[in-house]
Design a protein around this nucleic acid. Sequence first.
DNA 1: TTGACATGATACCAAATGGTTTCATATTTA
DNA 2: TAAATATGAAACCATTTGGTATCATGTCAA
Lengths: 100, 100
Amino acid sequence: MGFRALADPTRRNILRLLAANEMTIAEVAENFDMTRAAVKKHLSILSDGGLITVQVSGRSRVNALNPDGLRRVFDWFSYFDAFWDERLDTLKSEIEKDMQ
Amino acid sequence: MGFRALADPTRRNILRLLAANEMTIAEVAENFDMTRAAVKKHLSILSDGGLITVQVSGRSRVNALNPDGLRRVFDWFSYFDAFWDERLDTLKSEIEKDMQ
DNA sequence: TTGACATGATACCAAATGGTTTCATATTTA
DNA sequence: TAAATATGAAACCATTTGGTATCATGTCAA
């Protein structure tokens, strides 16, 4: 599961970065105090976990958030829906407001 | 974050077990092909991550799902809300149906 | 074509992880 | 009180993880 990919804080921060802009490996690496090689490993793990997509463009690899992958992890929580009815109720009431 | 606690499949399975019933360590351990000590380690990690609560009762430790902890992890995903509008739309239409 | 640039890949290392076994401690209960 | 029960805790081990450094490869541009 993609949960393993999300277990590391660096990788979660990479995802937030990529939520703003797709970036090459070097561009992602600029934001962290570690080697490009280390960042690339993280990106590979995120890619393996389906949380990002990689588009090769010449000598660059453009990394972008993959919403579908994130969704698959997110949906795991639906198993526990019964435990947070309040949240759904809150959402429901906000949607009702929105529809008036 | 509790993501580390969720990274291991055994721990995720423990959470699903506890979603059905709160259980002692020994009861949880019955469901897995590993030592009680190993299961107890997993339960400690889940507890450290705030995903379960433990109520000591005599010589037993009763482990129960902690919805609040799960919610904190779940809410991390809200950062990416902009990326899955469709999901919210789906939910919205289901709620609309529900309200008719 | 040659050099600079972006990445791939590999070997290596320390620390963390997931497991085991063994023994100690606390609590029932006969 | 003594034996059985439920857990705590520590030592140990193999594997994984997160990081480094180094070198190879492919691509762009002069």
